[in-house]
Computed example of a mutant assay.
Amino acid sequence: MMPEAAQTLRVPGRAEDLAGLYGGIEGAELLGLLSREVFPGRIALVSSFGTESAVLLAMAAEADPAFPVIFVNTGKLFGETLRYRDQLVKRLGLTDVREVGPSAAELAAGDPDGMLFNRDYDACCQLRKTVPLQRALAGLDAWVTGRKRFQSATRAALPLFEQDGDRIKVNPLADWDKERLEEEFTRRDLPRHPLEADGFLSIGCYTCTERVAPGADPRSGRWAGSAKTECGIHMNWTGTAR
């Protein structure tokens, strides 16, 4: 049941306003409400099609199979990730998956030898992830992410609604723990990313992703050995990732 106050809201407010109106709603119900009533035609889900992505994608498909999904293909993703994406899209019946990535001209100017990752992690992420995503988000007022507090110390205070400049980020699974996530995988009978069983718990580009040691931070395999914790897509969060 939609909150009475929400029924009159047509112009999105700031993150704290949205939290007050919709903080008690979750899952497919929340995504459907946001896409139909709050941000019609102006919201998309951004997914890496990684190890935990299937749950949020399933919720979006349940809310609306045409819920827009943005997938950033950096050109350096595992082949297993691309095949997993195709499997999930077919399985869930998603009809609006938008693949974006760096242009040939951008790569020629910024990473002509394809080895920028070896020289500057941040510059490589900016070129291959952040810039393409910003293009894809043009014209949108909100976007949905799959981030969760348990994933790393830098996400420990992640809110449900987050101000992202003039846009709103929605983190529907922010307060989910690993146990609840696993229960949802089982309940929905969702397929797993093929690399997860091999110790890859957070998967990005093959150039910068390693297996995670038992009991370690799930994101410790990303840019291992460096101080980097975020690719740049989420560096505008008002926590320690800023």
Rank of each mutant, 00 (worst) to 15 (best):
R36Q: 11
R167K: 13
L94F: 09
R147P: 02
N118K: 13
V131E: 13
A153H: 05
E183K: 14
P159F: 05
V89H: 09
G24I: 01
G199D: 11
G146D: 06
K90E: 14
D17R: 14
G199Q: 10
E196M: 12
R85A: 02
L9F: 08
V11F: 09
A108K: 15
T130R: 15
L127N: 07
A213D: 12
Y84I: 11
E183C: 11
A105D: 12
D64Q: 04
F67P: 07
R149W: 00
A61N: 09
G50Y: 03
V100W: 11
P194I: 02
L18H: 15
K129M: 04
C205A: 08
V72N: 11
D113M: 12
E52Q: 07
A213C: 01
V97G: 01
V38C: 05
L137E: 04
V97F: 02
P194M: 12
E16Y: 15
T207P: 03
V38E: 04
L140S: 13
C125G: 00
M59I: 00
T238D: 10
L77H: 14
S48G: 12
V97C: 04
W176T: 00
D96F: 03
S47W: 01
L88P: 00
A6N: 10
G232C: 13
A104Y: 14
F117C: 04
M115Q: 14
G75C: 02
G13L: 13
G110E: 09
L116F: 13
D175S: 00
Q151E: 08
G146R: 01
L34I: 03
A153V: 00
E182R: 14
W143R: 12
D86N: 07
Q87P: 00
K90N: 13
A109D: 09
R147F: 02
L127M: 04
G13T: 11
C231G: 03
S152L: 06
Q163E: 03
G204N: 03
A216T: 15
S48Q: 07
L34V: 04
D175E: 06
E196I: 11
E29D: 15
P102S: 09
S48L: 12
F39Y: 14
D17Y: 05
E26R: 11
E106R: 15
P172D: 08
G41M: 05
W223G: 02
T51D: 08
G50F: 10
S220G: 14
V144C: 14
R98W: 06
W223N: 10
P214E: 03
L45K: 06
L173Y: 03
T229N: 13
A197L: 10
G225P: 10
P12Y: 14
W223A: 06
A105K: 14
L30E: 05
N73I: 13
Q151C: 01
L137R: 10
A109R: 11
A138D: 12
S35A: 15
L181R: 10
R42P: 08
R219I: 07
L77I: 06
W223C: 03
C205F: 04
S53A: 07
L107K: 04
Y84Q: 05
F49M: 12
S53F: 01
A58R: 15
S202T: 12
R135N: 08
G75L: 09
C205D: 06
T207D: 10
V212I: 05
V144F: 09
M59R: 08
L92K: 06
C124T: 08
